[in-house]
Design a protein around this nucleic acid. Structure first.
Lengths: 326, 326
DNA sequence: GGCGTCACGCAAATCGTCTTGCGAGCCGGT
DNA sequence: ACCGGCTCGCAAGACGATTTGCGTGACGCC
């Protein structure tokens, strides 16, 4: 590929008429350098557009100024926003991010982690269905780790969402608005299960009002159909996430049901589309960006202020976004 | 941080009772090794969970198996999907991705590029408003580059979208459906300008039908308001992107205008919400994921099959997603 | 016994930078 | 003339692996 011969520290030294030692010391301030030579060296560095080879530096210093980020699906807005926040937190400290989307494949994830271990200073793993065995290799390697969106306990920090509380808040909100028969469209995913649990604590519903569906637009629609067919249909429904909620609203519209007059609909996540559908969807937001930000800050601490210390756990509180659908 | 003492190649050699040379050779197959010792070495590697230090390897080999990705905003679904495609293309070849979201800040971008140059084998830069001067440093450094979403010419590959054609196709579609007065809500952005140009070639509209607005939900709404107030209002409107189109539909609904009966609405991008609003939005899709995939493949070629050769240019054709709003 | 092949070890060089002990000039002060 | 500070050069060692020329036993074959 004939990568153009990079200018090295020796080139700078030669051109500036000093030794590499001195150039290095100008850069690191590890030894005093006279103002005159410092200026000279900096001028040459500027002129030659010299950038120290980060690889060599990393090798010597045993730190790469890089953090590894593992997400199940970067296409999912939650992870995207979290990554954004994470980067905002670590970039000012000079850290880059290696990102890998694993499709939630455990084998892929394992390989990626192994590869990463020798090239990053810390790792952020995300995904609601993480197990201890998935993250153990990182802990064993002594690499700082922050878990995002899952809630495990081990030698690492955790930042997650108050899903259960969130489910409860949603239910309470509906109760407060006067709804009496509140249904829940649930799925098998971890967060949905916790949201369901929170809802249960508030309303103790008859089992027929809890309908398991697929985590999709169609799933939501089918759930709404099932509920509408009940002998005694609900007057409100909480859906495992916003996409399902939107699907449910469609089905309601198809059946001539008015939202929220005939049936109220709530979702979770506050995706972009939630504010764009009509009626605008009332939902429980997740502070995804803040998740990432906090994860980044925690990781920085572990990587710099020398990471020992108790594992920490940050849980983001539920946040209601009241709009028109409930 | 007391990173646990990593096992090195010497540890493996010692435990296997062979020399580092041999261990290295079973890994690289650069010299023949007897089946017996190869097995022994591999067993020890497994047992010790040895992973060669990628940094040292990269340094020696002068290649990092890492590509740098620069996007204006990773939160934007277009770039997210493109990144997904990119990763799908390069991961099988053993490449990682360093991703940085620059907020389209030129200064940030410049710094990031400089940092990246010493640690990646290739770079993908994206953003519609790239200028030659932004990418020149990469070319100068002799690092393979692929530009995504912008259309410049230089010593690098380009993959972009047929925005102009896309605008023309949208206009033709409306004409074909019998619409006669077709308006356009435009913004200052590059892609929007090209889409507008395509539309102009098809309909040669009176100037009053081209209304410049802000690139947002509100912008779309205001644009619709303006058009509705015209002495002779349009019967269709093409919006610079889907978000504006959705805003326009809202305003139409507020004014009692039925879409598409009273006025048809089209957008660009095919964002998630486009399929979720009602009526479902007819729009021109961008094959974002494919953009990334192709970019990845092009970059791989440059990095491996030894990159010389004519710069290549891939333009994705327009793709109409016909739904209910037009 | 001579010779060729195999399989492997040894040791040195490389990648580009940082770190450090040991001096060596130089200058000013006494 | 001596001494203490400064400023800087020299040279060697690390970081952890890859690569290679040169040997050297072992073994088999003629």
């Amino acid at each position: 590929m004939a990568r153009r011969d990079r200018v090295g520290i020796t080139d700078v030294a030669a051109k500036a008429g000093v030794s590499v030692t001195t150039v290095s010391h100008v850069l690191s301030s590890r030894r005093p350098v006279s103002e005159a030579t410092r200026a000279k060296v900096l001028a040459v560095i500027e002129e030659l557009d010299y950038r120290p080879n980060e690889l060599a530096r990393s090798m010597r210093a045993r730190r790469t100024h890089t953090v590894g980020v593992i997400v199940p699906d970067i296409t999912n807005p939650f992870y995207t926003a979290a990554f954004r926040g994470l980067q905002e937190a670590v970039a000012p400290a000079g850290y880059h991010c290696i990102v890998t989307s694993t499709d939630a494949e455990r084998s892929v994830e394992r390989d990626v982690v192994r590869q990463m271990l020798t090239r990053v200073d810390g790792i952020v793993m995300s995904g609601a269905d993480k197990r201890l065995e998935d993250v153990q290799p990182v802990v064993d390697a002594g690499v700082p780790l922050v878990l995002l969106g899952a809630d495990l306990t081990g030698g690492f920090d955790v930042v997650t969402n108050a899903d259960e509380e969130s489910g409860a808040v949603a239910a309470e909100y509906l109760v407060g608005r006067g709804y009496r028969r509140i249904a829940f469209l649930s799925t098998e995913s971890e967060p949905a299960a916790r949201r369901l649990a929170g809802y249960r604590e508030v309303v103790s519903p008859p089992e027929e009002l809890i309908v398991p569906v697929a985590e999709s637009l169609e799933g939501g629609a089918r759930g709404m159909a099932t509920l509408a067919g009940l002998a005694e249909p609900p007057d409100a429904v909480i859906c495992g996430n916003d996409v399902m909620a939107i699907g449910a609203m469609y089905e309601a519209a198809d059946r001539g049901l008015r939202v929220p007059d005939d049936i109220a609909v709530m979702g979770f996540d506050d995706i972009d589309a939630a504010a764009l559908v009509s009626p605008r969807l009332t939902t429980m937001a997740t502070a995804s960006r803040e998740h990432g930000q906090v994860a980044g800050e925690m990781l920085l601490r572990r990587m710099n202020d020398d990471g020992a210390g108790e594992p920490r756990r940050v849980v983001f509180p539920a946040k209601l976004i009241a709009r028109d659908s409930a």
